[in-house]
Write a protein that binds this DNA or RNA. Structure first.
Lengths: 137, 137
DNA sequence: CCGTATCCTTGGAGATACTG
DNA sequence: CAGTATCTCCAAGGATACGG
């Protein structure tokens, strides 16, 4: 880390630090991307209280399309975040539930949601003020 | 909204609970959406150590285009998450920094990133196993 | 009931070129 | 240096219809 630049010139900004999940953390970036995904968050949120079946999930996550529900569930299963249990019954029944790993993600995501809930008012106010200052451009 | 259906039918799964950020929490949903945004996360991550100027941010967040950097910064400023300071100098200089509010978001997001880092290996393994079990379909 | 397959639209995002 | 403006592309996602 060659900061400091002891030449008397402007040092203010700190330079290219980026010890964060860039470069090397491509994988992590993709995971965060998925974890922050709109439908992902809502689906695992819906599974917070226990297992749900397909149609229940559809009802629990208003606005989601079959396509997206199926797709999201597939990703989550693939990552081992939710489990799928199919009962070979006359009217087919399939239940989805969070895995232990999925539960830990729920925790992390809940923090973010809580953050949004806590500061939602402040942010709205900020937006209003900003838009006020910059009418349309 | 004609839900409820008090007809005594199947109750197993818990029904449409969704005491989560659905319906009413449209605002929260949008905030989470933004907070989970790829570039947003990377930009505030880059600002973790202090203020940076425009070009420094470009270097700190490899792969970001000017368009996206400008756009992301605008959103963040609008939400009051980062501040912008322009110095009226001969070669223009503009510095961006996290606001206190932005710092709290960084905390929340860091938890998610840490989660990704912690379970990244496990997830990769899960994916491999899943893809193994379902070759192409 | 539980999905998969297909079409089609929208806007997110990169590349490029230009101003203050 | 610090952006803005414009074009284009592509893929995420909704609607719909069908299969197990």
């Amino acid at each position: 880390m060659h900061e400091g630049a002891a030449d008397g010139r402007a040092v203010v900004t700190g330079g290219p630090c980026a010890r964060w999940p860039v470069e090397k953390g491509e994988d992590i970036r993709r995971i965060v991307d998925r974890a922050g995904d709109k439908w992902t968050v809502l689906v695992i949120g819906a599974l917070e209280h226990g297992c749900l079946r397909y149609t229940d999930l559809q009802r629990s996550v208003p606005g989601i399309s079959q396509r997206m529900l199926t797709h999201t569930l597939r990703q989550l299963r693939r990552d081992g975040l939710v489990s799928r249990t199919a009962y070979p019954e006359v009217p087919p029944r399939v239940e989805y539930a969070l895995t232990p790993l999925g539960a830990t993600l729920l925790d992390a995501v809940t923090i973010l949601v809580d953050w949004a809930g806590t500061h939602h008012g402040e942010i709205s106010a900020n937006r209003a003020a900003f838009d006020e200052a910059a009418p349309s451009h």
